[in-house]
Amino acid sequence: MDAFEQLGKTFFDWEAMVAVLPDLLTVGLPNTLLLALASGIIGTIAGMILAIMGISRNRVLRWIARIYTDIFRGLPAVVIILLIGLGLGPVLREITGSTSPYPLGILALSLIASAYIGEIFRSGIQSVEKGQLEASRALGFSYGSSMQLVVVPQGVRRVLPALVNQFISLIKESSLIYFIGLVASERELFRVGNDAASNTGNLSPLIAAGVFYLCLTIPLTHLVNFIDTRLRVGRKQKPEPDDPAAMIPTSGGVRA
């Protein structure tokens, strides 16, 4: 067997790939999606709270948000996952009686995601022109209502591409959950592929898992590009020029 054949066998052994497919589809894929979606949703909610705290006029709230963000953005994901997964395991077991570290995996991913998403939201909210808040306040809306109805919706819209990018990161980072030890039915894509690779001494199952990741992430990447273009260019519609003749309402009102 020459070197090329050897490489082909190692990476592209069809039989090994086909053999791992059922597990990837029925175990790996649902778990990866569950981990990414759950932590994405929790991270988005917590991130919004962090962003609001981060721009608050209350210095203490700002500091809490700052410190939280610095820590969870500054540490490697695997460190957080291990510390949370192993450190809080006994606590969780005492409360719920369950030995599964799965919820802790979601928690760790959510903590990381919220730090990044909080910064994304904060930058988006702060990019909204000051005049928007001013116009809303001038109509008689309170600061809170103005943020909720006018400023935050615009800020969030601007950072949708960054938000989808963050979700792509989560899909990939969910593979790190394998560090905290999962039972067979809880394995995500990477772990399923890795187990099969260890059992067969062949890397093809990992390639198969990789293809699954790409099937998730590539469409999302293109979604980002689509949203980005849409946000920058807008829907195709041109402003029409004012028609001076038609636009002056002639009420001819008498001075009161």
């Binding site: 022109e129 005049g131 116009a135 809303s136 306040r137 001038a138 008689g140 309170s142």
Partner: peptide, 28 residues
């Protein structure tokens, strides 16, 4: 907030809410 509901204000840069339709801007 109550005072500002009694005083309408128009700005140099319009400051319409770009994420809402013209109708929603007026009816919000």
């Amino acid at each position: 907030d109550e005072l500002r509901r009694r005083i309408g204000m128009v700005f140099q840069q319009f400051n319409l809410f770009p994420h809402k339709t013209v109708l929603d801007n007026v009816s919000l």
